[in-house]
Amino acid sequence: MAEHVQADNAEAIITRIEHKSRKIESLLKQYKPVEALKTALEGSPPKTRDERCKSANWIVVHRALMAIKDVDAMFSSLDPEYYDILMK
């Protein structure tokens, strides 16, 4: 039974990541890459062991990172909480 609950939870996490992905694409079209990265990092799946969740979240974060031209400026503008999430 516990595995079934985890599978449902994983599906919920994937759904949230897909929603977040659409929001990030919208921010990138508005030329707001740092806001897109912050959105990607917010609500990252905490301590999930589901590889699909980790992979889906990484794809979203990577997409936002690749849109940033000035990485040094991005790092200096990130709040410490976002920096910690990114490094994990």
Rank of each mutant, 00 (worst) to 15 (best):
G43W: 10
P46Y: 08
S26F: 10
A67R: 12
A56Y: 12
H62Y: 10
F75I: 14
H19T: 02
M66G: 07
V71F: 04
R63I: 01
A67T: 01
L86R: 04
K29Q: 08
A67P: 02
N9I: 10
S44E: 13
P46C: 09
R22F: 13
P33A: 14
L27W: 08
R52G: 03
N9A: 10
D79G: 11
T39C: 06
V61T: 04
Y31K: 15
V5M: 05
A73C: 13
D84H: 02
I85Q: 13
L37P: 06
G43N: 15
R52Q: 14
Y82W: 14
D72V: 07
S44H: 12
R49H: 14
P80V: 12
S44A: 02
S55M: 11
F75N: 03
I68T: 05
E3G: 05
F75W: 14
K47T: 06
E25F: 02
H4Y: 13
E81S: 15
V5Y: 13
W58P: 01
T48W: 03
S21Q: 15
D84Y: 07
K69R: 13
A40L: 11
I14M: 02
Y31P: 00
C53V: 06
R16A: 06
L27V: 09
I59V: 05
K88Y: 00
L28A: 04
S26P: 00
K20M: 07
V71I: 13
Y83A: 03
E81A: 05
H62A: 11
E18K: 15
P33F: 02
K23Y: 03
H62S: 00
